[in-house]
Deep mutational scan, measured.
Amino acid sequence: KELVLALYDYQEKSPREVTMKKGDILTLLNSTNKDWWKVEVADRQGFVPAAYVKKL
């Protein structure tokens, strides 16, 4: 499975999103959308801005 690194803190703004902290390592589930990537963090799945994460 592919992992991404959170480059910035992100606070979810809708139930479809997830909160992450800078430095978090997240499991990447889907990166087909260039703006929003689906990730899993702490047993929750949701979207984060693609610009806020980097593939490892």
Rank of each mutant, 00 (worst) to 15 (best):
V53Y: 01
V53W: 00
Y10K: 00
D24F: 05
V53M: 06
S31G: 13
L5W: 07
P49H: 03
W37L: 05
K22Q: 10
T32A: 14
G23S: 03
L26C: 09
E40P: 00
K1D: 08
T19Y: 04
P15I: 10
Y10A: 00
L29Y: 04
R16S: 14
D35I: 14
W36Q: 03
I25Y: 06
D35A: 11
A50H: 04
V48S: 00
D9T: 06
F47P: 00
D9S: 09
L3K: 12
L5K: 08
E40S: 11
D24Q: 14
S14F: 06
K38W: 15
L3A: 07
K21E: 07
N30A: 09
N33D: 15
K13N: 10
S14L: 09
S31C: 11
P49W: 04
V41D: 12
Q45L: 08
A6S: 05
E12K: 13
L5H: 05
Q11K: 14
W36N: 02
K22F: 06
D35K: 14
G46Y: 05
V39L: 05
A6Y: 01
K13G: 08
K54V: 15
A6W: 02
L29V: 13
K1N: 10
K54D: 08
Q11E: 13
L3Q: 11
W37F: 07
K55P: 12
L7A: 03
K34M: 12
E17L: 06
D35S: 12
V41L: 15
K22A: 14
V53G: 01
G46I: 05
K34S: 13
K13D: 07
A51E: 10
K55S: 08
V41H: 15
K54S: 12
G46P: 00
D35R: 15
K55A: 08
T27N: 10
V48R: 00
D43L: 09
D9H: 06
E40N: 06
L56G: 03
V4D: 00
K21Q: 11
V53H: 01
E2M: 10
A6I: 03
K55L: 14
E40T: 08
L28S: 01
P15C: 10
F47S: 03
N30I: 08
D35G: 09
L26Y: 12
Y52E: 02
E40L: 10
K22N: 04
K1R: 14
G46R: 01
D43M: 09
G23T: 02
A6N: 01
V48M: 02
V39Q: 00
Q11P: 07
L7M: 10
Y8Q: 14
N33H: 13
K34D: 11
E12W: 06
S31D: 15
V48C: 03
V53K: 00
D43I: 07
R16N: 14
T19A: 07
S31Y: 08
P15N: 11
T27M: 13
L56Y: 09
R16P: 06
R44T: 07
M20L: 09
E40D: 07
E12R: 13
V48H: 01
D35Y: 15
L5N: 02
M20P: 00
Q45G: 07
R16F: 13
K13R: 14
K55H: 09
K34G: 09
A6F: 02
T27S: 11
E40G: 10
I25T: 06
G23H: 05
E40Y: 06
E40W: 08
D9V: 03
G46H: 02
E12T: 08
P49Y: 03
K54I: 15
L28F: 04
G23V: 02
W37N: 02
Q45E: 13
L3C: 11
L7T: 05
K38D: 04
K21Y: 11
N30C: 12
P15W: 10
L56K: 04
F47C: 10
K13H: 09
L29D: 02
K1W: 12
V48N: 01
K55D: 05
V48A: 03
K54W: 10
P15E: 13
T27D: 07
D24E: 12
T27I: 15
F47M: 09
L28R: 00
R44G: 07
K22T: 07
Q45S: 12
E12M: 14
L26A: 08
T32I: 09
A50P: 04
V41R: 15
W37E: 01
Y52A: 11
L28K: 01
K22R: 11
V39F: 02
L29T: 05
L7W: 04
G46S: 02
Y8E: 11
V18M: 12
Y52I: 07
S14Y: 07
D43P: 11
R44F: 05
K13F: 05
D24P: 00
Q11L: 13
T19Q: 05
L56A: 05
N33Q: 10
N33T: 07
V48T: 02
A51V: 10
K22S: 08
Y10E: 01
F47G: 02
